[in-house]
Design a protein around this nucleic acid. Structure first.
Length: 431
DNA sequence: CATCCACCGGAAAGATGGGGCT
DNA sequence: AGCCCCATCTTTCCGGTGGATG
């Protein structure tokens, strides 16, 4: 992402260096391993992979209902707005995309219709959302409009969005995935009122996806009344459906490498995890990786079991590696306290002092205590720490007790791997 | 049983850095 | 060039909290 000036010291063109040859050969060896004994087409197991639509399992009812709500769009009328609920991995996005694409495919000849999918966990502010939508619907060739990613005011982005819709579409469907992560309701408000406030003649149908059932209730009254959403809820997949979903992806593997019990076991695991299809696929993929790493000929149930814990560890490691430096220092403070004490829970004050030590030690800025509290809350939101409020009464007031969710050793190791924490004096602790 | 401790957490505003427009 | 807008992180200020304490 950045300038490459610091690394690449070995690039120069003197090819006769033996060490470099060796490296090339190692790399070649790995890259050119043509025969993968386990996988035939691994991309079928990627999370982003959308199965061909005739393979959607067990969601016929949902597809039917959603299609009915959107029926108007096909003829150029206003579709209903829909809020789709359901736990993660229950096919909400998949079905929404599928039905929208079908609406586009089956539209009457004289109806200009389009749909776009917006992930509100990425574009979580009104401005970003308006920007992304405007760019997604736009075609510079046709409209002559260029829409920059950033730099414009929110109002300016809306203005362009309306222009684009006006020029290019009679009806659009907008899928807002994870709509509950949106910072505020303004986007929904604007979209639902675009017509009546004369911004555009294009009719807009919103499909808002949320995994929190309470979300609609929290919605601003004004939004609710102008959106008038229909509600649709998705149930978790049962074990049998999960199994079927996995069977459809069997082609990812070479024939006969999957032991009979593997898919049912993955399905059973995922079914106990709230029927999350994504998890089922994850576990299956990881099982394949485990088998590969162990040079096995087939994927066994044991591989699935091992993969399950491995997958969780990987996820956790990635999560911790990805947090900002200040958060790492904070987390490390908590880990060190846990390592040096019988207790599991520590009041914020104590953790803060430890955090100050760490910052001093590695020469990092110390944040204010207020900010520190927010950092802890963010860590709690990510599920890395747990915090519990307790009132210690007259001598202590209210305090948060913080506890690591994972083993402190693991957390400690992961953070110490970060180069910026290398200089940290070993186990500086005792308070 | 009223008090009171000292931390919690909301609000607002500053700092910094991304970028576009005219 | 000078101005405007937005995102993110941080600090400052301060009212709220509720069980242990006397």
């Amino acid at each position: 992402m950045e300038d490459g000036s610091s690394r690449d010291t070995s690039v120069p063109d003197d090819a006769e260096q033996p060490s470099e040859d060796a490296e090339v050969n190692i790399a070649q060896e790995i890259f050119s391993q043509q025969e993968d004994p386990i996988f035939a087409n691994k991309s079928l197991l990627e999370i982003s992979h959308v199965p061909s639509f005739d393979r959607i399992v067990g969601r016929d009812n949902e597809i039917r209902k959603l299609s009915e709500e959107l029926r108007g769009a096909v003829q150029g009328y206003s579709p209903e707005n829909v809020i789709v609920y359901g736990k993660t991995g229950t096919g909400k996005s998949l079905v929404s995309k599928y039905v929208s694409s079908q609406a586009v495919a089956n539209a009457h000849d004289d109806v200009r219709i389009g749909y776009e999918y917006l992930d509100c966990s990425t574009d979580n502010t009104e401005t970003q959302a308006a920007s992304t939508l405007a760019r997604a619907f736009n075609d510079p060739e046709e409209t002559g409009l260029d829409i920059p990613e950033r730099g414009l005011s929110t109002a300016a982005y809306y203005k362009r969005l309306w222009q684009v819709l006006e020029q290019r579409y009679d009806v659009v469907l907008i899928i807002l995935d994870e709509a509950d992560l949106m910072a505020d309701d303004n986007l929904l408000m604007k979209l639902s009122r675009a017509g009546e406030s004369g911004n555009t003649d294009c009719r807009i149908g919103v499909i808002a996806i949320s995994n929190k059932i309470e979300w609609a209730e929290d919605l601003n009254e004004r939004v609710k009344s102008s959106l008038q959403p229909k509600e649709l809820s998705f149930h978790p997949y049962d074990a049998q459906q999960l199994e079927e979903i996995l069977q459809h992806r069997r082609d990812a593997f070479k024939p006969d490498v999957l032991d009979d019990g593997v898919i049912p076991l993955c399905a059973a695991y995922a079914a106990s995890d709230f029927g999350d299809a994504r998890k089922a696929i994850d576990v299956l993929r990881h099982a394949g990786n485990v088998a590969y790493e162990r040079d096995a000929d087939t994927v066994t149930e044991q591989h699935v079991k091992d993969a399950r814990t491995k997958a969780e560890k990987d996820r956790f490691k990635e999560l911790v590696e990805g947090i900002p430096q200040q958060a790492k220092a904070s987390l490390l403070a908590l880990a060190i306290l846990s390592l040096n004490s019988e207790q599991e829970e520590f009041p914020t004050q104590l953790v803060y002092r430890q955090y100050q030590n760490i910052c001093d030690n590695i020469g990092q800025d110390v944040r204010s205590e207020r900010r520190f509290r927010d950092i802890l809350k963010e860590l709690a939101f990510l599920g890395i720490v747990d915090n519990r409020k307790e009132n210690l009464g007259r001598s202590g007031g209210i305090t948060l007790l913080n506890r690591l969710v994972e083993e402190p050793e693991i957390v400690y190791e992961i953070i110490r791997d970060d180069a910026r924490f290398e200089t940290l004096t070993n186990h500086l602790s005792e308070s």
